[in-house]
Design a binder for these strands. Structure first.
Lengths: 151, 151
DNA sequence: ATTAATGCAAACGGTTTGCACTACT
DNA sequence: AGTAGTGCAAACCGTTTGCATTAAT
């Protein structure tokens, strides 16, 4: 949307947030943050590395992962695990949500706020369990694939 | 808790089931099957390898994984993914269930039949989604860890 | 001048694969 | 005998780590 050099909230404050912790603002971190700012929902670590490489071919995986660590520390991303088991980073955790993953077509959807809240409440009541929505991935079949009946 | 009578004894017929498909009954497969027969609920691939090694120290990982493949083909196990991303094998014919995974203490519980059914129904209604319970892992905090307040 | 962060390479853990050999049928 | 299955080692993939070097502060 805007490639002006400043990021939309909460990305614009990242530099300051890092500095407040005595951490540094580097070109590599800028790359990772810019990719994250353009990302809605979720990315796997490997995906993020690829996208960063598209921006800056000299991107090194370990730097990306280390950057993700510090971004998670300051609360800008949150990691969970997808249905395929890979690390999955959720961007803008203020909109925490679980995922639906279709085993038929591989599609992914977010679980809406109401069913999500219902699930949280359900497990709180039945098991006293405090669900972390960002870690919920439900596998099954989407309406289209259910109709298609592929097994 | 144990519905002993209502389920067939699937493990005793494995040999025949394999033969019917032109597959073979080997000491290695016997080991894997015996370990699975003694397993309730779920195991990761790595766990299974370890347990098999306890029975027969000469157990080789690739053999275990290959055996799991054929056992899945004949419907004796089903694989999913745990919260930590590792492959997880669900032993049948237990009823399918999701899991609760506590981020605090690492504990694991099965999601009970009623809340599970409620979740399935919920997502069916809200998204038309056909949930595969065996692939559901919900991460959060168990009652004890919630009380402890560890973050 | 500090010392956090990087680049690189190597290590990791769980899983998969290629291939010659073994052994079930 | 024929071929499924094994053992082994090496490859794999995403991720992590050790360490000397670079660069933000």
């Amino acid at each position: 949307m805007f490639a002006t050099g400043s990021f939309a909230e909460p990305w614009s404050s990242v530099r300051q947030r890092l500095r407040d912790r005595g951490l540094r603002w580097t070109p590599q971190r800028r790359t990772v943050v810019s990719v994250l700012a353009a990302t809605r929902g979720h990315v796997t670590g490997a995906e993020l590395v690829e996208r960063c490489r598209a921006v800056d071919p000299s991107t090194i995986p370990s730097t990306v992962y280390r950057t993700l660590d510090v971004l998670e520390e300051i609360g800008l991303v949150r990691h969970g695990h997808g249905a395929d088991g890979r690390e999955e980073f959720h961007v803008r955790p203020e909109e925490e949500h679980g995922h639906l993953h279709c085993a038929g077509c591989g599609g992914r959807w977010e679980i809406g706020a109401e069913p999500a809240a219902a699930i949280v409440e359900l497990l709180r009541v039945s098991d006293g369990f405090a669900v972390d929505l960002s870690h919920v991935t439900v596998v099954g079949r989407c309406p289209a694939c259910t109709r298609a009946g592929t097994s």
